[in-house]
Nucleic acid binder design. Structure first.
Length: 596
RNA sequence: CGGGGCGUGGCGCAGCUUGGUAGCGCGGGUGCUUUGGGAGCACUAGGUCGUAGGUUCGAAUCCUAUCGCCCCGACCA
């Protein structure tokens, strides 16, 4: 490609709407243009990156026997009603854009494709002999995100690779899932990215096992915890660990401790010579269920630890028959809500009385008391006295009644031990989720009646897996991981061009001829080359090349007279003077080093 | 949805407090000079001051409403 016929439109200043570096660079480099909140145009440079990523994905997935297809974006509401997701995705979460056609029939723009593919699978997959199969597509998805942000990181329209596999048994699903996991590792490695695979919460999509692939970067929205050796890695939503030991309480003789205006754990520790690990803090939640019951919850955890609301959410869902819709902290505002009487916030203890729940309240009249293991393991502890300005010494949990549920509702954190052997500790980093694989099981096949004839002649529900990669997000995450002060430093595997030719003065016939010669030779050898044939000063071309992040550049300048050019690496600015005759060979050798 | 911030040529901003008929840098065009890290000089084009209403002799500026965008929380590839 030649710059004069390729729309290169870099900006001198980054638009002020961008916050994180990768978003700024995408806009400033002219890769994307915003059309509306969370909706972007992919300009030619961007499309080249997307295509490179897509090709890498295709290659790996075809290797494990997946078939590419293209599904519709507009889905009949009826199909989503069958799976039971229409209400929740439209009226409920509102994540699904939906509309009516001229006949008043409901349609939705696809946020994901389980319904459509399962429906098709039910029609074409009749026998176990046809299994397993895996279909995938690279498609635009639509999600009316509550808050789109960071450019392509969380758009409302974005490109995703989504794959769906069908199996005759759970075991076969598990085998394929493993294959896919390996395949994902290859894909991300082939994109030149550093990723880490973590155990994840399967969330709304549901299913047994699930794994997320994270690009580690400061701007990440997720926290991940892992060990140095790689023996353990999990999303903070799911991570389980053993916190550091608590300090034992010795010779404590007071029962009631006066703690005037000491609501924060910090203050209580400071003024009373107590360690945070000796305190049990109690946080109140309200769980709202699908069947309209509202359940007040007292969650107890060791003073130095934090509650993991996802774990709590999942726990409550397990305990109750109805689905939990919302879980929120009961804070001061709720005091006015006629539901509680005299709530001594800051002085709550695990034995908080059921009496304080107002008799006229819509809530259940009993606290669900959940104790995290970090608290339940304490032999004795300090906690609130349920009385303003007082805390209390609890000699043991024993004399409290036994209505407590003991579970893991705690956030793992850096420095925690992985197992009881206490050999390895956890490291915490921010990550950007770019891939997620799930073992769905039979959730969708059951709802959509997708059955096959099994070996023994009976009809069974198909076993399903689903596998996503955020293609546009991956591209931006790659920038977040690979940039410097001058601009983007694309991994060569997904760079829009592998090399840019920069004649410092294109009007000079000698430089022009040499440039054209190299250009032709590189093209003949299928190298993705960009020729900056603009009549611009060298500095302008250098700045642009740095900004858009082409991994190599060849400068055709003052040494042209000796038939020499310079090969420069974007990443480390290493310069190599090369004779014209060897430039192709030198480039191939140098660029090879960048592929792993 | 709750909390915060911002809308002024393509991009970055000033002007608004204290109303007086819109300005700077970059970018665009033309010419000359320059040419290895976003050149210099001269000329030039380009703006419903987000939108609607109000106050006023007069509104980018004050008031009201409304729309859009960005950031912090719940959603997720």
């Amino acid at each position: 490609m030649r710059v004069t016929s390729f729309p290169l439109m870099t900006l001198r200043d980054a638009p002020s709407e961008a916050e994180i570096i990768s978003h700024k660079l995408l806009l400033q480099g002219g890769y994307i243009r915003r059309v509306s909140s969370g909706i972007y145009a992919y300009m030619p440079l961007m499309l080249k990156v997307i295509e490179k990523i897509s090709t890498i994905i295709d290659k790996e997935l075809i290797k494990i026997g997946c078939s590419k297809l293209l599904l519709p974006q507009l889905h009949p509401g009826e199909l989503w009603e069958k799976s039971g997701r229409w209400e929740g995705y439209t009226a409920g979460e509102g994540i699904m854009f939906n509309l009516k056609d001229r006949h008043e029939r409901s349609y939705g723009l696809a946020p994901t494709h389980e319904e459509v593919i399962t429906n098709i699978a039910s029609e074409i997959l009749k026998s176990y002999k046809q299994l397993p199969v895996c279909y995938y597509q690279i498609q635009t998805k639509f999600r009316d995100e509550i808050r789109p942000r960071f450019g392509l990181m969380r758009g409302r329209e974005f490109i995703m690779k989504d794959g769906y596999s069908f199996h005759s048994s759970e075991n076969d699903l598990k085998i394929f899932y493993k294959k896919m996991e390996k395949s994902y590792e290859n894909i991300f490695k082939n994109c030149g990215l550093e990723t880490i695979g973590v155990d994840a919460d399967s969330g709304a999509i549901g299913g047994a096992a699930s794994k997320e692939f994270m690009v580690t970067a400061y701007a990440g929205e997720d926290s991940i915890l892992y060990t140095k050796s790689g023996s353990y890695a999990a999303n903070i939503e799911k991570a389980v660990s053993i916190p550091k030991e608590s300090k034992p309480i010795i010779n404590f003789n007071k029962t009631l401790i006066e703690t005037p205006n000491q609501k924060a754990i910090e203050d209580i520790c400071k003024f009373n010579n107590i360690d945070a690990t000796q305190i049990v803090k109690v946080i109140l939640y309200l769980g709202e269920f699908e069947d309209n019951t509202k359940v007040p919850i007292a969650a107890c955890i060791r003073g130095d630890q934090n509650i993991n609301e996802i774990k709590m959410f999942n726990l409550l869902n397990e305990i109750y028959d109805s689905n939990l819709i919302n879980l929120s902290i009961i804070d001061n505002q709720s005091l006015n809500n006629d539901n509680l009487i005299d709530l001594p916030i800051g002085y709550l203890g695990p034995d908080i009385s059921d009496e304080i729940i107002n008799k006229n309240s819509q809530w259940e009249k009993q606290w669900i008391r959940i104790i995290d293991y970090s608290a339940s393991k304490l032999k004795s502890f300090i906690s609130g006295a349920n009385q303003v300005n007082f805390h209390k010494y609890f000699k043991s949990w024993k004399y409290l009644d036994d209505t407590f549920i003991t579970s893991d509702i705690r956030n793992a954190q850096e420095g925690d031990f992985v197992s009881s052997e206490k050999k390895e500790t956890l490291i915490e980093k921010k990550g950007i989720e770019i891939g997620h694989i799930f073992q769905l099981g039979q959730k969708y096949s059951e709802k959509l009646n997708a059955k096959f004839s099994s070996r023994n002649g009976g009809l069974e529900n198909l076993w399903m897996g689903c596998y996503g990669i955020g293609v546009t997000r991956l591209a931006q995450a790659a920038i977040e991981q690979n940039h410097d002060n001058e601009g983007i430093c694309w991994p060569i595997q997904i760079a829009p061009f592998n090399v840019v030719l920069i004649p410092t003065n294109f009007k000079d016939p000698l430089q022009k001829n040499l440039s054209e010669e190299i250009y032709m030779e590189f093209k003949k050898n299928n190298i993705d080359v960009l020729l900056d044939d603009r009549d611009e000063r060298a500095g302008v071309k250098f700045k642009d090349a740095d900004l858009i992040g082409i991994p190599f550049r060849i400068i055709i300048g003052r040494d042209s007279i000796n038939n020499q050019v310079e090969l420069v690496s974007r990443l480390n600015k290493n310069k190599l003077k090369v004779s014209m005759n060897n430039i192709l060979e030198s480039f191939i050798n140098e660029s090879k080093l960048m592929y792993n």
